[in-house]
Amino acid sequence: MSHDMIMGLVTGIVFGVLLQRAGVIRYDKQLAALRLRDMTILKFMLSTICVAMIGTYLLVDLGMAKLSIKPTILGGVVIGGALFGVGWAIFGYCPGTAMGALGEGRLDTVFGLAGMLVGAGIYAEIYPLMKNTVLTWGDYGKITIPQVLGVNHWIVIAVFVAGTLALFRWFEKKGL
């Protein structure tokens, strides 16, 4: 195994332990979030995003890392996001968590993982068509929010973290 592959495996194992112990790979937790009944998933995700946002931009500012920015293509993001939401709600797991859920013995993921492989195969078939249609609709290229607003990234990060903390407070007050 290459160095890259070992790093990937180790990172995955730690991530898998965190996902399993926090209970966020459970179908019931994922669906409860979509039904606005239990916000465990959002608490986990938003905590991850806030910490990763601060840490990653620190690395970038120190010249120790480069951002990996995906292009903002409204056609792909809006249509793809909506499809993902529908599929996620029906399956009850996302690609990464499905592997974790299989690890804790949830065998329904086998059907969904097979479906995801088929879905990837279908996408490979329709990719040339998508590239000439949906993926040309509203293509803004590789942009970031600080760049579009013309402000320093730490201002955006501070506002995002403050908003997240306010949301967390509200979740706890409502017992979600």
């Binding site: 793809g80 993902f84 529908v86 599929g87 059907f111």
Partner: peptide, 20 residues
């Protein structure tokens, strides 16, 4: 099983379309 399979197909097409 059928729902999980169909959901998996739709979710993956969506994820790929959104480049996520």
């Amino acid at each position: 099983g059928v729902a999980a399979f169909v959901g998996g197909i739709v979710a993956m097409i969506g994820a790929r379309l959104a480049d996520g």
